[in-house]
């Protein structure tokens, strides 16, 4: 697999140069970040998602944005607690996070997780946390529009058949449908839509705290139902924009034994590779 070969080669050189600043570190130098990168629990702890996290950092560093992470001061937004009905735990988490964010006078947040994105953007304001919150696909799209991100001429995705899976908490929940698609289109890929897409998109099966429990009795897992849409599309790459969708789609590909035919990549990874980062 050529795509994967390139990834490994690039990573070893880039990673050594990459220093990821924390807000505390910037503050100590009397600076503050233009934008906070909210990493999220999946992006912090899940090995597959960590690679996406690092690619986002590479993009941020490449375009020269003064960004920072909270590091060990970041806590779960409380989203899975809220969707599972534990409003107490959710609000405890939210208020702890808001205290830290407000303490650092954070104004703008970018996150790679649509669940964090939704919660920070929609559910924190009434608890005292008011920030401009964007998803990484929106940031990347605006960087492309501003001309700050230019893909390499002969990048590996050109002409490739790629499909995009809408995360529920980005799409239906917040009406972000175009940013990820515009990124892919700007790379001259052959963007092909899934049978169920945009507002009609099918969930990967992880939302509403399902990620943390076994599914109820049924005749199929939701991610299998979804991966069948992907297989039907004949795409070689399915682009994701959510760490939970990433896990579910990869599991689906594995169960269907399609690892040789279908790759699951986050929009951030595709962007980073197309830009030679």
């Amino acid at each position: 697999m050529g795509v994967r070969g390139i990834e490994i080669k690039k990573k070893t050189t880039m990673e050594n140069q990459l220093h990821i600043p924390t807000v505390a570190e910037l503050m100590a130098k009397g600076e503050s970040p233009e934008i906070l990168f909210w990493v999220g629990c999946a992006g912090s702890f899940d090995e597959r998602a960590q690679r996406i996290t690092r690619d986002i950092c590479k993009i941020l560093a490449h375009v020269g944005l003064r960004y920072a992470i909270l590091g060990t001061e970041e806590n779960c937004t409380g989203d899975p607690a809220k969707r599972a009905g534990n409003e107490f735990l959710f609000q405890m988490q939210a208020m702890m996070n808001i205290e830290i964010l407000n303490g650092y006078e954070i104004k703008k947040i970018v996150t790679a997780c649509p669940h964090c994105f939704n919660t920070l953007k929609n559910e924190y304001p009434s608890l005292g946390g008011n920030y401009e919150v964007i998803h990484h696909t929106q940031l990347i799209q605006s960087l492309i529009d501003e001309g700050k991100l230019r893909p390499d001429d002969g990048h590996i995705f050109k002409g490739k058949k790629i499909t995009y899976h809408d995360p529920c908490y980005l799409g239906r929940a917040n009406d972000v449908y175009d940013a990820p698609r515009e990124i892919l289109e700007s790379l001259d890929v052959q963007l092909t839509e899934l049978k169920r897409c945009r507002s009609n998109g099918l969930c990967c099966g992880a939302g509403g705290a399902q990620m943390f429990k076994e599914p109820e009795k049924g005749n199929k897992d939701v991610n299998i139902e979804r991966i069948e849409d992907v297989i039907e599309s004949n795409a070689e790459i399915v682009a994701a924009a959510c760490p939970f969708c990433m896990t579910m789609l990869r599991d689906g590909v594995k169960v269907k034994e399609k690892e040789q035919e279908i790759q699951v990549l986050d929009i951030a990874e595709i962007t980073a590779r197309a830009n030679g980062l």
């Binding site: 990493v39 912090s44 590091g71 970041e74």
Partner: peptide, 16 residues
């Protein structure tokens, strides 16, 4: 501070 059983102190290990 995370839905999984990881230590909070390890949260930024990916960065280093």
């Amino acid at each position: 501070g995370a839905p999984w059983k990881y230590a909070q102190a390890d949260r930024a290990n990916w960065a280093n």
